[in-house]
Amino acid sequence: MAGTGGTTSTGATGTQFALRVDAVSKRFRQGQRELLALDNVSFDIEVGRFLVIVGPSGCGKTTLLRILAGLERQDEGQIWIRPNADGHPAAAMVFQEQSVFPWMTVRDNVAYGLALRGVGRRERFREAERWIRSVGLEGFERAYPHQLSGGMKQRVSIARAFAVDPDVLLMDEPFSALDEQTRTILQQEVSSLSEQQHKTVIFVTHSIDEAITLGDEVLVMTHRPGRVKRLISIPFARPRDVVGVRANPRYGELYEEIWQLIAEEVQQGPREE
């Protein structure tokens, strides 16, 4: 299982788990038919690790993330997230689509989670401004989202998630709508920030390249119903240069390996029950 191997363990944390998924299944009703979206999915992840989930579209990876975020309930199985000291939600999510509130300024957006916790105005703005600086949006504190580019909005979304200091960050294809240059820059920032802040990250993508450049572990899922097909360790140390990593000879091998796994699934198509 993820992280239990300990070969690239962060050391100090030992084998403390941030999150465990145990035999989770999820069905959707589609008219008369029942559709099995997730079938007996199990994995766990150590504190501070970056897990990337890849798989063919429709494999239930977004459903899995939504269950972890508390937006859906699994039909079977258990989710365990390491409780944090202050009783706040341990996970924060960055969504795929544009999810920054258009009616709030950048600062109010980033401070949103803190405002819901009842953190005072001055304190939450100070915290928000710190995160706005970290994602390189200094000077845009009072701007409204319609004044920002797609990449800038996604930076706001990332800052909003980091600002509540979650133990686990859930990211659902956060860069898929961005152009390649912006995507690469944001990949680097998320990689560095999550490393600096010792965050556990679960990152869903359909891009093999993104999976290898960002992940400590890559979990490949099967076509529907989504099962764990293979868990692959990425041997690159972090902090990591997301562009430099592509020049590593191991990168090509990993790409090939993951591609083969996904291609098998795509060719096979969905299994009907």
Binding site: A69, F95, Q98, Y112, L116
Partner: peptide, 21 residues
């Protein structure tokens, strides 16, 4: 609906959702 999801993941209660979203 994604805005409602955002509110929920940040722990918004019903009244918070009405007020902020």
């Amino acid at each position: 609906p994604v805005y409602l999801d955002v509110a929920k993941t940040f722990g918004a209660r019903r009244l918070d959702v009405v007020r902020t979203v």
